[in-house]
Write a protein that binds this DNA or RNA. Sequence first.
DNA 1: GTCCAGGGCCTAC
DNA 2: GTAGGCCATGGA
Length: 222
Amino acid sequence: MSFEPLEIFQHLFAAYGPQHWWPGETPFEIIVGAVLTQNTAWNNVSRAIANLKGEGLLSLEALYAAPPERVLRLIAPSGFYNVKYRRLQALLGYFHSRQGAWQYLHTAPVEEARAELLSIHGIGPETADSILLYAFGRLTFVVDAYTRRLFARLGEDWVEKAPYEAVRRYFMEGLPPDVALYNEFHALIVTHSKAHCRKRPHCAGCPLGQHCAAQRTAALCV
DNA sequence: GTCCAGGGCCTAC
DNA sequence: GTAGGCCATGGA
């Protein structure tokens, strides 16, 4: 029994409804969160964001100019704070010095905008896609660890270890070119994974149960 | 105490 | 081109 990515989206949407992602109020907050959440549980990231917000540092110029030791202290709860500080500075430096960066990322062909973000130290494919999709509303699919695990369990085994670009292509070629759909799909994958996975053997009531059970005898659903 | 989380860079083969 | 080490906190 095979399936299309769109079917999985439809099952998840029916089960969980619209997610209204990203969990951040402004594009700048989304950008900062995208870096801080690298290989990190969101709960820890939200503490760091709250710290920055509480000290009025959730703006480009304020955060870029803030003393390193102050920023390090505030973002510490998100972990990897030394590397994340350098990556944040690199990204903020880009927006600070690159004239018309915001407009460019909004309007340039998406692959060009993506290449520009990827050239910044500390911005890899997932972070670039998160920024483009959620802060700029651009058409690009976000592939993360949840996405790989879920689709591997559903039967697309190759997705688990395949190069990022190959997985991204699989989704973008299998889905209609719809920013709102990409936005919701990634959010739904995260919501579903947190709700159902790795804690229970083969969850009862899993909205993907048909696909999952048909594909695997695996002990874990995602 | 152990494991792991919404990655990406650097270094060795 | 790719496998392995590294970065660090907080919750389960």
